[in-house]
């Protein structure tokens, strides 16, 4: 299954091994791991609760992966996003992309993270010394996503790195 929404932690190297297995055409795997920080927006963070919209979450990430496959020459994708109660330094999200070459793998991985940050239905609530608060969406995330909509070098004319 390409997409998992789960409370359990994940093992990056096991996931990369699974992504590469039985595909000798893979020349590159790019991965991103997001983790809980102990500070955000000027306050210490002692815990983070992740809520999601079951059903929509999986659908939306699957459609982001389809968009990545149409846009980039990639062979396999694995996305894991945790939900529930997390602590500082816990892993939150994994995006791993396998491709023949590194250019597509790097770009598709960043594309998927930017897309996920702006469209996937998750919400974070942080525990701070001042009390619990919902994290606000960042303008910089919308700007990052907008950059992808401004067009990219045409894959037909640009050699993959």
């Amino acid at each position: 299954m390409s997409v998992s929404i789960q409370t359990a932690d994940f093992d990056l190297s096991a996931e990369v091994a699974a992504l590469r297995s039985a595909d000798p055409g893979v020349g590159a795997v790019a991965t991103f791991v997001g983790c809980v920080r102990d500070r955000n927006d000027g306050s210490g963070v002692s815990a983070m609760e992740l809520e999601h919209y079951p059903g929509m979450t999986e659908k939306s990430i699957e459609s982001m992966i389809s968009a990545a496959r149409r846009r980039f020459d990639i062979r396999a994708v694995r996305v894991i996003h945790r939900v529930g109660l997390l602590q500082p330094q816990d892993q939150i999200v994994l995006v791993a992309v396998a491709s023949s070459h590194r250019g597509s793998a790097f770009r598709a991985c960043e594309f998927l993270m930017d897309y996920l940050k702006t469209q996937a239905p998750f919400w974070k609530k942080e525990s701070t010394p001042e009390g619990s608060r919902w994290v606000d969406a960042r303008v910089s995330d919308d700007e990052a996503m907008a950059r992808w909509q401004q067009g990219e070098p045409d894959p037909a004319t640009e050699p993959d790195r």
Partner: peptide, 10 residues
């Protein structure tokens, strides 16, 4: 139909 604040996953 669902209503929710801007998302903050990832």
């Amino acid at each position: 139909v669902a209503f929710f604040p801007p998302v903050t996953g990832g």
